[in-house]
Every structure is written in structure tokens, then in C-alpha cells.
Design a protein around this nucleic acid. Structure first.
Lengths: 337, 337
DNA sequence: TTTGTTTATGACAGCGTTGTCATTAAACTA
DNA sequence: TAGTTTAATGACAACGCTGTCATAAACAAA
């Protein structure tokens, strides 16, 4: 037999409405009453029915995780973090993988929100950086948090969790410079991703800070893919004046670069140092293991969800949350001989 | 304004109950009536409220995907497949990552099912192979599908989707034999995973079929991890009589073996051929790219979900569904010189 | 036809909550 | 103290659907 709110009310000798107030943390309940109710709920091992709650209220007690990201590890980590917070706070998670590049992606998302009556959205790149989408969501009063690349200073729309790619990129470049490298090439990620730009700018800034001039030949356009790393490294290896280090915008690119160097018989790290970004599990499984930067994806997800749920409950908290990916030195880099 | 069942009923000039019948595919509705209703639903772009449905009925219209698997790619593919079918059939998906090794895993799952009132479960290895769990689920009348390693002949409990690892393993081994290899080592996966056993048996059977004796030194215990591949390959390379090919039970092990060989300066595939299993994305990103076996994970997920939802609707279909992973020849194998 | 039988459809209560508004109790104020 | 304001609590309808049971329509057999 399922325990309902009435049993709890009876047990606590209050009305069901008061129990409801306690469940939803509504103000205007005396502490003593609240305690009684909480106790009754525990004694009866009561859990409110999600279905009844969402039917009766305008909320659905569900949030959506919408993503378009080929990196399964990232998604799983995010998802697990979101799920943790959802469980704690009695919310459900609706997963919505999608393709950010289809023309009607915005409609698709708005439709989903409307249909499922989602209380909020967790958005990751590149969706979190789609200005048009953000605009429409705000217009329709949809609540959301965005995980985006940036330093948390700028006036971004909506609540944001900032990932300071630039600082991490600066640190990586600085590290290479300290190893004595001066000819450091950079293979870019997708130009539409803000992280790509931020990472490039961090690289640029670090070079500048050490007075090293930027060599245009060493900056290769690309996207966040293995193939891009292969192509990028190939063209770098074709240069008369070759770089001594390659900074790949993410681990996949780095793996591709590694692959291309291997094909060419170039020793890593003896002849060229390579660094990646993201700390994908496979960055530990290449040979040699990749030096890279790690971001605490699950913590990011938790913070994001926390922020979102506060918003959903109209507890506006305007704090700036920023994460700094951390340099992880492994075996694909060494001091310039 | 949200469209409800009453609007549809009005539009189709029938009672709401009849609309309900159509929604749930209940028998006893004349075809003409059904058409009218379907048409009205489309015209109004109607979607039933999950909350109301589950409140009113004993079902929740939610199924659970419970997994413990470190392979993010596998999980994402499964999840996407399940999600596709859920959307089609108006079900919701509840994701539940867990640790299959905690002592009270069975209670945890039973509790989840009870609490969320899940209509069914999709189970993947190793949970799908936990006899105790299966037993308890059957006892409590919980519906489920199991994705398991096997050939679909055995009398397994519950509905199963079989992955014929053995046949694929046989094919891989046969392929190595055809390349002229006779000294083929095998690095095992987790002994608790049925797939591990099946893969080993396929290997054994293939050797036998070609009259090649099994060399005990060449069979290395392990688990499905990179580290295990490193260790396994190291001990193989330490043998006085070395293998000319290594069959790793999955791509992670293969990547580890590759890594160990590189460390030792052993050329792949010139000196040793290596094959993996699973076709993880990173098997395309190693150098050289791994020869492996691919399973259509998303299709597997769809079949499984389909089967589960039929069960949920009490449409018992007792068909045997089997998938055969397919050999993918890439660059980590070559004919014995 | 008429009656009986089956099949298709509808009326209505109820699922477990929340929102609204009324009521009561408590806390001030003069 | 009585009167007034404020805080705490409760009664009850409503949310959108399904289950049960009653009724109407269609068909078959006489």
C-alpha cells in the first residue's frame, strides 16, 4: 500500500495542505509543526508522488539536459552530476540528445520544453553558446543554466557556470615555455565553440607575456576531432621551420597529432612535445600518455544543477561560479634539448 | 494553452474515454472511430500528460535504464537507442547509474523500481548477468529485458537480447589464423562478465577448428581495462617463446597492450598483430588503428526497448533476438611474415 | 420482425497532489 | 482590555487522465 499525503497528515495531526507546505518548503509553517510533519514523513517512509505533484501544480519537477556533444565521457560525467543533485532534491531528469546544427534546433528545444513542461534546462556547449537560443528561451521565460567558456566577468545572459579555459590555456602554454619551447604551434578547435577561442587567446596571451612573437604558420584552423589533429600535424610537419611543441585544443586533436607524428616517424616527446586539453580517458591510453588539462566535469554539473534548481524555486542567487581546468603533466612533453 | 484529452474528444466528437482507448491502443474501438481520433490528435498536436496518466493508472509510463559500465560510449549509444523508442511510444526514461559491486545493489534496484513505480527495466552487463537480481526481479514481477552475451539457445530467464560474442570471437581468431598466425595470445576480460567467457570460448573453438593447440602461457587473466592490457602484454613479451598476435578481449585492453609493446619497442603490426573488441571510438585513434569487432549498440538498445515495451503492454512475443558483432579489419594486424 | 448476444461507446468517480481562499489562532496596538 | 493586524492552518476544487460499470449500437438467430 502506497503512503499518501493524507496518511502523513493524519499521523502528524495536521491538514494535508500543511504537509504539502512542508514538502515544498513554503514559508509560513511554525517550526514545531514542520518538525512534526517531517517526523511523520520519515516514520512512514513517505515520498510524494511526482505524478500528482506535477498534475496539480504548474511545475513538472523535471529538468532537461540538452546536449550535442560527441564526447561521451563528458556527457556521462555531466549526466551523473546532474542526476546526483536531482535525486537529492526530488527532481527528475529528462535527457535530450540533439544535433545543434539542424536548422530548427531552437524550435525543437522550445517544443520539448513546452510539451514536457520542463522546469528548467542545463545547457552545455555548443548549445549554451547559441545566442539565438538563449534569447528565445529568455523570451519564453524558460529557466536555464549555461555552462560556458569564459572568465565570469562579462555580462552573460542567464545564470552561467564559467569554465576558465583561457587561464588553463595560459598555464599550459606557460609550462611549455618554461620547458624552453619557443616554437609552439596551436591547432584550433571548432571556431563556433567559445572554448576554442578562449583557449587560443590564453595561448596568445602566454606567448606575449614571455615576449615570444606569434608565428602565423604555427596556428592551424581545425575542429575538435581526431582527423583535424592528423591534418593539422601533417601541415605543421611539412613546414621548413618546424615547431618543437604542439598545443592541441583538445585531446582528440592531440591524439590525431600524435598519430600523424608517428606516421612520419617523429618521436614524441623527444622531437616534438604535444599537449591536449580535457583529460579524456583515452588521453591516458595513448603512447605516450598525454599532458593535458583536466576539468572537474561532475562538480561542474552539480553546481550547474544546483543553480538551476534554486532558480526554479525562485531563490535568485546571483553568484559567479567559475572553474579552472588544471594542468596535468604526463609523458607527451619534455624540456627542449 | 495546453491541449487536453477533452479538446481532442470534442474535436473528434467522441467521449474522452474513447480517446483514452485510442491513446493506449486498447481493443474495442472501431477503425473509423480510431481514425477520427487519431486525426484530431494530430490536428491539435496533442500529447497526453504523462503525469495525469500515471496518476490515474497503475502504470508510470516510465522505464528504467540501469547500468554499471565504465564505457561511456557504450552507455551513450544504449541510452540514445532506448530514448528513440521511448519517444516513439510515449514513454519516459529514468536513468540509473550504479555500482554493481556494492553489496546491496539488489535492494537498491528493487527500491528504485518501487519508489519510481517503473514499468520495466533495461539491463546491460554485468547487471543483466546477475542471477540473484534476475531471480528477485522475477519474484517481484518486475518486467525487464536483458542484453546478454550468448547464442540465444539457452533457456535464459526473462526476455533477452543475445550478443553472439562467441561467434565474433571465433571470426576474429579465424582471421588471425588465416593471416598465418599460430601463436595467438589471449588477454581475458573480467571473469564475472559472460562476454569474457564467451569471447574466450570463441577463441578456443577457432583454434581447435584449425587444429592449433591451445598454449596455456598465452592465455592471460585480466579485466576490461587499459592497465590490464599493459600488464598482460608485458608478461607475454617476457615469454621466451613470444606470441605473434595478441587477441585482447576489448579495445581498452588492446590499447594497453599496444602501449606496452611501444614501451618495449615492439613494432605493431610488423612484429606482433593486435586485435581488440567493441569498436570504441578510440580504437580508431590509436596508432596504428585497431582491428576490432563492432556491435550495433544503438540497434541493440532499440530492440531491447521494443521488446520491453511489448512486455509492459502484455503483448508477449517470444522471439529470440541475436546480434553478431562484425569483424573490422584495420591496421593493427598483418599477415605473418 | 423480435429477441438475445456481442461489441462499441459513454458517464462518472477517483488517482495524490497544489492553489485559492476562508478561517482560526497568535501577536500586536492603543 | 478590546480591537486590529498578522501569521498559521484548513476546506475544497481542480489538474488530465484511466478504471469501472452502465448503456447504446450492431449484429445474429429465430
Amino acid at each position: 500500500m502506497k503512503i499518501t499525503i493524507s496518511e502523513v497528515a493524519e499521523h502528524a495531526k495536521v491538514s494535508i495542505k500543511t504537509v504539502s507546505r512542508v514538502i515544498n518548503n513554503e514559508p509560513g509553517v511554525r517550526q514545531a509543526t514542520k518538525d512534526k510533519v517531517t517526523e511523520a514523513m520519515q516514520a512512514l517512509n513517505y515520498r510524494p508522488s511526482q505524478a500528482a505533484r506535477s498534475l496539480a501544480s504548474t511545475q513538472s519537477f523535471q529538468i532537461g539536459f540538452i546536449y550535442d556533444n560527441p564526447n561521451a565521457y563528458y556527457i556521462i560525467d555531466m549526466q551523473n552530476g546532474i542526476l546526483d543533485v536531482c535525486r537529492e532534491q526530488n527532481f527528475e531528469l529528462v535527457i535530450h540528445p540533439c544535433d545543434a546544427k539542424v536548422p530548427n534546433i531552437i524550435e525543437e528545444i522550445l517544443f520539448l520544453v513546452k510539451r514536457t513542461n520542463l522546469d528548467g534546462l542545463v545547457l552545455t556547449p555548443p548549445l549554451s553558446e547559441n545566442q539565438q537560443l538563449i534569447f528565445e528561451l529568455q523570451k519564453k521565460n524558460v529557466k536555464f543554466v549555461r555552462v560556458i567558456s569564459g572568465a565570469g566577468k562579462q555580462e552573460d545572459a542567464g545564470q552561467c557556470i564559467y569554465i576558465n579555459d583561457r587561464a588553463a590555456s595560459f598555464a599550459i602554454t606557460e609550462y611549455l615555455l618554461e620547458l624552453g619551447h619557443r616554437d609552439i604551434a596551436f591547432i584550433c578547435g571548432d571556431p563556433e565553440h567559445m572554448s576554442s577561442i578562449e583557449r587560443f587567446e590564453g595561448y596568445q596571451a602566454a606567448l606575449k607575456s614571455k615576449g615570444v612573437a606569434l608565428n602565423g604558420d604555427f596556428v592551424i584552423d581545425g575542429e575538435y576531432s581526431f582527423e583535424s589533429g592528423v591534418q593539422g600535424a601533417k601541415s605543421l610537419l611539412g613546414l621548413k621551420h618546424k615547431p618543437t611543441a604542439i598545443f592541441a585544443s583538445n585531446d582528440e586533436i592531440a591524439a590525431g597529432a600524435l598519430f600523424a607524428c608517428r606516421l612520419d616517424g617523429v618521436g614524441i616527446p623527444e622531437q616534438i612535445s604535444i599537449v591536449g586539453f580535457e583529460n579524456s580517458p583515452f588521453s591516458r591510453q595513448t603512447w605516450p600518455k598525454l599532458t593535458t588539462a583536466a576539468q572537474p566535469t561532475k562538480s561542474i554539473a552539480k553546481s550547474a544543477t544546483d543553480l538551476l534548481l534554486k532558480q526554479v524555486r525562485n531563490q535568485k542567487v546571483q553568484q559567479v561560479i567559475e572553474f579552472n581546468p588544471e594542468l596535468l603533466v604526463r609523458d607527451s612533453t619534455q624540456a627542449l634539448q
